[in-house]
């Protein structure tokens, strides 16, 4: 079963919930940190990394001996990643989406593909939790290929928790795709409610079952409740606002210790989600013909190492 923890805006407590849920789950659990621009789960869990792999994407290269400088490749590219000069194409790999179109339209076969490293996927154990995280290279603009690489490394069985990046655009979609359930974390402020609405729109567009966790809940503030009642969205858990929690979090300490009732709450949350998802409905095979051989854009860059770092 795959559960994603998401929110419209950052700083709502998404990572804290994901980490502590991973610590409470009574079965084999993998925690995927898909917030590859700012991966933070490792700060709280300190996994011993036993596997680190460079992730690359396919980018074109030109063989100048075969190139006629006809401009077909640059004309085809939708991402302005190729300048068609009269001396031949000039490639800007950081703008490439790895669609492979330029290679196919080249009339002389002068274009081929090579891999370009965009980041790392690191795996390690933190106690019983398998932590898998992506780390985007700084100045790298596009994270979805790295997010997909992280998700590919999730174990087939057991429980997988996915800490999503914030927002509603391509990186979040890449992280949410194919999960069985999404937990949307929010807080009872005008910003929180506004961003919850966006997050709800996203999971509904993707047709994913979901529920809400209210973090920093304040007695008397019912704005999130009113919205969820009107939209028939289940509120799965409320975590009270507390300076103690904020301080424990700031020190990287376990929130489970700072808030004694939380362990039981998370256990109930986990069991409720299991009931909502139902017995293995998520892995129901889709009706489709046998898959044909596919060319994948997200290929390892070939620096697969069993490093102890």
């Amino acid at each position: 079963m795959k559960i994603a923890i998401a929110s419209g805006k950052g700083g709502t407590g998404k990572t804290t919930l994901a980490v502590n849920l991973a610590l409470v789950v009574p079965e084999a659990v993998a925690l995927l940190d898909c917030d590859v621009e700012e991966p933070n789960c490792h700060i709280f869990l300190a996994p011993t990394v036993d596997r680190s792999e460079a992730i690359g994407v396919m980018v074109p290269v030109v063989d100048p001996d075969r190139c006629l400088a006809c401009g077909s490749c640059s004309h085809f590219c939708q991402y302005h990643a190729i300048a068609g000069l009269d001396t031949g194409p000039l490639i800007f790999p950081e703008l490439c989406h790895s669609c492979g179109g330029c290679v196919r339209v080249c009339p002389t076969g002068a274009m081929s593909e090579t891999t370009r490293e965009i980041g790392l996927v690191e795996e390690g154990w933190a106690g019983p939790v398998r932590v898998i995280q992506g780390r985007l290279r700084i100045t790298e603009a596009s994270s979805p290929p790295l997010i997909r690489a992280v998700k590919k490394r999730a174990p087939a069985d057991g429980m997988t928790l996915i800490d999503c990046p914030p927002g509603t655009s391509c990186p979040v979609i890449a992280a949410l795709r194919g999960v069985d359930f999404a937990i949307l974390v929010t807080e009872p402020t005008p910003f929180g409610l506004h961003d919850l609405r966006l997050a709800v729109g996203t999971v509904r567009t993707l047709n994913i079952a979901f529920g809400v966790v209210v973090n920093r809940a304040q007695a008397g503030n019912r704005s999130i409740h009113e919205y969820c009642e009107a939209e028939r969205i289940p509120i799965l858990l409320e975590v009270p606002d507390s300076r103690q929690v904020a301080e424990a979090y700031s020190k990287g300490l376990s929130v489970l210790d700072a808030l004694p009732g939380l362990r039981g709450d998370l256990d109930r949350l986990y069991r409720e989600i299991k009931i909502r998802v139902g017995p293995e409905t998520g892995s129901e095979p889709r009706e489709c013909p046998a898959p044909r051989q596919k060319r994948s854009p997200d290929q390892p860059a070939g620096r697969d190492s069993q490093s102890q770092s």
């Binding site: 401009g71 640059s74 300048a83 068609g84 000069l85 009269d86 001396t87 000039l90 800007f92």
Partner: peptide, 29 residues
Amino acid sequence: AEIVSRAGAECVLTGHCGPKAFKALTAAG
């Protein structure tokens, strides 16, 4: 930069030029 290159120009006179255009023009000699 593509337009300039295909027009067969040898030099460009302008006010400001960004990094990608600069790289492309330089590559085109």
